[in-house]
Structure formats: C-alpha cells, structure tokens
Amino acid sequence: MSSTSDRGERGNSGENKLAGQYFDAAIGLLERVRDEEGAAVAAAARAIADTVESGGRLFAFGAGHSSLAAQDVVYRAGGLALMNLLAVPGVVGVDVMPATLGSALERVDGLAGAVLDTSPARPGDLLVIISLSGRNSLPVEMAMNARALGLTVVGVTSVAYASQTRSRHTSGTFLKDHCDIVLDSKISIGDAELTAPGVAAPFGPASSVVTNALLQATMAAAAGELAERGFDPPMLRSGNVDGGHEWNGRVFSEYGDRIFYRH
C-alpha cells in the first residue's frame, strides 16, 4: 500500500497538483471514517438486517446534494432491493427551478410530517436520513417524526456542524440528536477541502464521495450480516449482464410488497 506522502508526491506534481490534493483529501477522509466509524457502521448494518429479517421495509431520504447518497442505494445493481427512496417533492437533487427553492424547502416546518403521513412507512421499518449539516428543519423533523411513528432512524451527517453552527429548527437540536444510530462523515464545516492562490473561496467538496462510500459500506455489512444469519439477502444484479433482468424479476416478485419504486 502506498503511503500518504507517496500519493502526494505523485498527485501533486505539475498541472495535476490540485487534482492530486483533492484525491489525497478524499482518501484521507475515507480512511478516517473506515477507522473511526466501524462500530457505528456495524450497528447500522445490524439494524438493517434486523429490519429485513423481520419483514420490515427500508427507506432513505436526503435533500439537495445529500439526496445523491440516498439515491445511490435505491434500485442499484449490487444493492439491497428493499431500499426505497423517501422522496420530498422539490428537494430531491437540484432539478427544481430555481435550485435555491430546494434549500428554502429544507427550512419549512411541518413538511416532514406531511411526507411521512402520506408515505408507506410504518412501525418496524427503518429510515436512513442523510444531511451533511443536520441543522435544517426538514431532516430534524423527519427524524423526530419517524421515531415517533416507530421507525428505526439511522442518521448520516457531519457531527462537527452541531458544535460549530446553530440549528435552524425551533428545538435548537440537530439530526444527530434524534437518531438511533449516527454515522459521522467527518466532513469539515463548509464542505470544501482545498484552497489555492487566486481562488477566493475554498473548493473541492468531498461529502458526496465520503457519504456514498459510508452508506455502501453499511449496505455491504448488512448483506454480510444477513448471510451470517442464514438469510439470503435480496440483492439486485445489473441489468447489463446476462440473466440480470430475470434475477431481478424474481426478487421483485418475492419482495414486491416491500419495494415501492416499482409502483
């Protein structure tokens, strides 16, 4: 394995200096979450396995760019077929126009309750909530209401925001305060890993890289946990390999009552 200094020497030469620095920063964060979040990942994996084994359903929610990680574990080749996207109109990704409307909707009180009340989520299910800052009303209320409904809540957030920023929720609390399990992405305030002469603002966000990896690691651990219990985890295959569509069709048929992205 190459050392960090070796990577830096290769990546920081010539015109690729900033690209190399970004890769080094992302790798460093990935190594940190691997080394420091192992217990939380294992706990989240067990909770997911418990939910699958007991007949529950899995949901993921994120707003804005945090929705990228939620979407990455839904209907994904190599992923658990039972993971569903809990969509909130106007905040999934940046396709709403103007894009700033999505940010405004994250601060609207009461929206999370309306979404959960009209969703198929029920007691015994599990909800993964992704929010980098964890400070806006929508993720905070989503966690509060989900737990009140009897769902297990796994939060994926940067815990640093709770000590260095103020909550935008009326309770003064953050997402991390209302979760059964918290996965800390370790992302610094502002989500920008690089600075350079001539560039006025910090740049090089790494939250998507780290959060996606953290969630995929958790899903992998959950699949392994289920297998160890003797329960064949319902995984999806790529539709671009021979037999993939047929495989997925059998999974959809067996677990159709717990898969909502096909309705």
Results as ranks from 00 to 15, higher is better:
residue 164 Q to K: 15
residue 164 Q to W: 09
residue 165 T to H: 11
residue 165 T to G: 11
residue 165 T to Q: 15
residue 165 T to Y: 02
residue 166 R to W: 11
residue 167 S to V: 15
residue 168 R to K: 15
residue 170 T to Q: 06
residue 170 T to C: 01
residue 174 F to Q: 13
residue 174 F to S: 07
residue 177 D to I: 06
residue 178 H to R: 08
residue 178 H to V: 14
residue 178 H to S: 09
residue 178 H to A: 06
residue 179 C to S: 13
residue 180 D to M: 00
residue 184 D to I: 05
residue 184 D to W: 03
residue 184 D to A: 03
residue 184 D to K: 05
residue 185 S to N: 15
residue 186 K to L: 14
residue 186 K to A: 14
residue 187 I to T: 04
residue 188 S to T: 12
residue 188 S to N: 09
residue 190 G to L: 01
residue 190 G to H: 12
residue 190 G to V: 04
residue 191 D to P: 07
residue 193 E to C: 15
residue 193 E to R: 07
residue 193 E to A: 13
residue 194 L to C: 07
residue 194 L to G: 11
residue 195 T to I: 15
residue 195 T to P: 01
residue 195 T to M: 05
residue 195 T to K: 01
residue 195 T to A: 11
residue 196 A to L: 04
residue 196 A to M: 06
residue 197 P to A: 12
residue 198 G to N: 10
residue 198 G to R: 01
residue 198 G to L: 07
residue 199 V to P: 00
residue 200 A to G: 07
residue 201 A to K: 11
residue 202 P to W: 14
residue 202 P to F: 05
residue 202 P to N: 14
residue 203 F to V: 11
residue 203 F to L: 10
residue 204 G to N: 00
residue 205 P to T: 08
residue 206 A to K: 04
residue 207 S to V: 09
residue 208 S to Q: 10
residue 209 V to H: 02
residue 209 V to L: 14
residue 210 V to C: 09
residue 211 T to P: 11
residue 211 T to W: 12
residue 212 N to Q: 13
residue 213 A to R: 10
residue 213 A to S: 14
residue 213 A to Q: 14
residue 214 L to Y: 02
residue 214 L to P: 00
residue 215 L to S: 07
residue 216 Q to M: 09
residue 216 Q to W: 07
residue 216 Q to F: 06
residue 216 Q to E: 02
residue 216 Q to R: 08
residue 217 A to C: 10
residue 217 A to T: 06
residue 217 A to P: 01
residue 218 T to P: 05
residue 218 T to R: 04
residue 218 T to D: 00
residue 219 M to W: 07
residue 220 A to Q: 09
residue 221 A to C: 04
residue 222 A to T: 08
residue 222 A to C: 02
residue 223 A to P: 03
residue 223 A to Q: 06
residue 226 L to I: 00
residue 226 L to E: 02
residue 226 L to H: 02
residue 226 L to C: 09
residue 227 A to L: 13
residue 228 E to Q: 15
residue 228 E to Y: 02
residue 229 R to V: 04
residue 230 G to T: 12
residue 230 G to Y: 08
residue 230 G to K: 02
residue 231 F to Y: 11
residue 231 F to M: 10
residue 232 D to A: 15
residue 232 D to W: 01
residue 234 P to D: 04
residue 235 M to K: 10
residue 236 L to D: 02
residue 236 L to Y: 05
residue 236 L to H: 00
residue 237 R to N: 07
residue 238 S to T: 02
residue 239 G to S: 10
residue 239 G to L: 12
residue 240 N to C: 09
residue 240 N to A: 15
residue 241 V to S: 08
residue 242 D to H: 10
residue 243 G to C: 01
residue 243 G to T: 05
residue 243 G to Q: 04
residue 244 G to V: 03
residue 246 E to Q: 05
residue 246 E to M: 02
residue 246 E to S: 09
residue 246 E to N: 00
residue 247 W to F: 03
residue 247 W to T: 03
residue 248 N to T: 08
residue 249 G to H: 04
residue 249 G to Y: 04
residue 249 G to R: 05
residue 249 G to T: 00
residue 250 R to F: 05
